[in-house]
């Protein structure tokens, strides 16, 4: 992709959240969250089911605004009332969501470009160009090998792994500075998981930043520079990788798991 040649801008934090609260009706999903990702840092965001991880990243990606608090991107304060997914894209933030990021009945190439289509005059889509690029990314970047799938396939016929492949390919293609991966490996075989982890290593090497959400402690421990632990909407741990072993990290999490699951790989 040639990303290592790109000159990255100078800033201290890719993203910084200050005292962020998020309510869904009466449910408080985030409470006084202070969270930051430094330039060229890989942050592993971990915590139990329902801890608020997806909610946290959705406030960063502009899906919904926080109820209160401040958001800074590349050290610039964001006006939350004007913040949107489009703006997040303009800030070069790419996201692979845990679910609901592809529309089933639509063609693969549409899913690839929707939201930032290649258009000619009057907003008409350049279909051929979009298909060509999507095809290119599928074949060369994420290595889709035939199996009857093309850019004209409906997303509904893709397997879980292929869907995630499409999302990751999309994130790679749009050349982001901050890449957010929300459980990108849940549906993947070991071989595919390795590909994703290598992709995250590449993110680091090319000078970008990443938020990586996963329930697999071994994966997170391998790739992250720092771990942030969420528990019921509150940040309860902020640990540098050098300060903790995989085993201790898992134990730490278990203390917060209240007897519940999800530390299977420790």
């Amino acid at each position: 992709m040639g990303e290592s040649n790109t000159v990255r801008e100078k800033y201290v934090y890719s993203v910084r959240m200050v005292n962020v609260d998020k309510y869904f009706g009466n449910v408080q999903a985030l409470s006084k969250v202070n969270f930051e990702v430094r330039n060229n840092e890989i942050v592993g965001l971990i915590g139990d089911n329902g801890a608020g991880k997806s909610t946290l990243i959705k406030t960063i990606t502009g899906v919904f605004p926080p109820t209160s608090g401040e958001l800074y991107i590349r050290d610039e304060q964001i006006t939350l009332s004007h913040y949107s997914v489009k703006q997040a894209h303009n800030w070069k933030i790419e996201t692979v969501y845990q679910d609901k990021s592809l529309a089933d009945k639509q063609d693969l190439w549409r899913n690839f470009f929707v939201g930032r289509q290649i258009t000619g005059p009057l907003g008409f889509i350049k279909v051929k160009e979009e298909k060509r690029i999507a095809n290119d990314v599928l074949l060369n970047m994420i290595g889709f090998r035939g199996a009857g799938i093309s850019v004209d396939s409906k997303v509904a016929v893709l397997s879980g792994g292929e869907r995630q492949g499409v999302c990751i390919g999309r994130a790679m293609h749009f050349d982001a500075d901050l890449i957010i991966l929300d459980e990108p490996t849940v549906a993947l075989s070991l071989k595919e998981v390795r590909k994703v982890l290598n992709f995250v290593h590449k993110i680091k090497d090319s000078g970008r930043s990443c938020i990586y959400i996963s329930h697999n402690m071994a994966d997170v421990h391998e790739i992250a520079d720092r771990f942030v632990v969420l528990d019921r909407g509150t940040i309860v741990g902020n640990i540098k990788k050098d300060d903790i072993s995989l085993k201790d990290l898992s134990t730490f999490l278990l203390d917060y798991a209240h007897g519940l699951k999800e530390t299977k790989n420790s």
Binding site: T61, G62, V63, S84, V85, K86, A88, H89, T95, Y97, K100, S101, L102, A103, D104, K105, Q106, R110, V114, G115, R116
Partner: peptide, 16 residues
């Protein structure tokens, strides 16, 4: 088409 297919997806990909 995306809104009719899945509103949540439409929001997440940046459709107003």
């Amino acid at each position: 088409m995306f809104i009719g297919d899945n509103v949540q997806v439409a929001q997440v990909v940046g459709i107003n």
